[in-house]
Write a protein that binds this DNA or RNA. Sequence first.
RNA 1: CGCGGGGUAGAGCAGUUGGCAGCUCGCCAGGCCCAUAACCUGGAGGUCGCAGGUUCAAAUCCUGCCCCCGCAACCA
Length: 477
Amino acid sequence: MSSKYYITTTLPYINSDPHVGFAAELIKADVIARWQRLLGKEVIFNTGTDEHGLKIYRKAKDLNINVLDYCNKASEKFAELKDSLNISYDRFIRTTDENHIKAAQEFWKRCEKNGDIYKKNYKVKYCVGCELEKTESELVDGKCPWHPNQELDIIDEENYFFRFSKYQDKLLKLYEENPEFVKPKHRLQEIKSFVKSGINDFSISRLKEKMPWGVPVPGDESQVMYVWFDALVNYISTLDWPNEEGDFRDFWPGLQVAGKDNLRQQSAMWQAMLMSAGIENSKKVLVFGFLTSEGQKISKSLGNNINPIEYSQKYGEDALRYYLLEQIPTYGDGDFSVSNFELLYNSHLANELGNLASRLSNLIAKEDFDPNIKKDSDQEFNENIKELMDKYELQFALHAIWQKIRQTNEYLTKEAPWKIEDKIKKQKVLEFSLQSLYDACLKLQVFIPSTCEKILKHFEARPIEKIEPLFPKIKNK
RNA sequence: CGCGGGGUAGAGCAGUUGGCAGCUCGCCAGGCCCAUAACCUGGAGGUCGCAGGUUCAAAUCCUGCCCCCGCAACCA
């Protein structure tokens, strides 16, 4: 087992504000990264921003500002997001970084050398509404059936293409040989059937005169890379590739996490690109679900987006982390609702965890003794959590930890140390309770780090005093 | 027949290889009084979308049907 561990999120596209769905992805990746560090591994945890392409170019033009200035500002918002969620990242890569641009170009050259990049004149009818090519058979009265009010654009330009089709069999082989390559299983099924149904070469460049905001294609002044091609390379450029001696050698391949909209890009396109460049495939791809807000799709036009930064400022980042990890199935879709958030905050964080710390610290403070606490005393508990975490079942692991917190409340009520006369006996009960809370927090710290740090520090200090409320209750008038 | 997900107690969800239907919240009743009016115990509440089939046994497998939702169109 290697002592190095690499994990990366996808890079969010910066043409709009941070989405709570991406916040969830960041948090899940953070839990995994923290867990691996807890196991003693040396971890590189990468995230960053994806900054090229037409939409960003247009957006900056609309705002009438320099494109790079726009990117600097927008990227800053995502940097702020990760900080406000207490994300333990090691790298924050921007696709406008110099070393990334060089890496993308080198990557291109490798694919080209392998005969997988070719130029093709392609003339298609293109629906801007769909951002998709349209064939004659798809059209109704010469118009896109979904956007009958829009005129179709005629695209007629020479672009470079990537020989995706060449990798169909190799991809299928990759999936066959690694049944755990994509998690959960049904996503592997989905990508398999997509690849099996036949994949087409995709365009990987744009005419510079129409759209200059991209990485220059090596050896062709007139073209820039299509945003997806350069963006995907970040997963290795952040490891300083094409330098193959340093972090890349030690940390690649790694674990990739992504939203379900990214299934094809991460588990098919990028994997084919790696094969073409002669680089080992990713270790695994975890695919997460989507979030709704109050049961409805989150969209700008509905104006129901949740600002994760606002929530973490108002209730503390651990409250938001807890909600997204506890309430949302790790690999499924979930819903964010304010009433549910408040409910979970009060009943779990304030009443169960917060109150347990309060009552226990108070009981011990009154006793004035020095409990003897060991690390990881509960073998069965440790193994149970480890097993779940090894399978990346974050939600189930969190539930199992919470069971321990509940059991500790139960134990305290049952033993009622405040009634026990015998000092030794009383202190034994308190010591055991504290040990349970301590064990739970050692694992819980990967989920809600700053709260657990407070708890652990408080109970490691001597003498133990009564603790301040960790989660003040939310009162509804 | 585009691809994918789902329909399980009032709400939100678990249910791995088929084996007495579970969890959180809410509700009702009790206990406790160390604690953030917190904690603990017990209870009520379900024809597991509908209809067939396989089986000693199906929420779980098979067939058909109905209904939601996501992607494909700003948005992870």
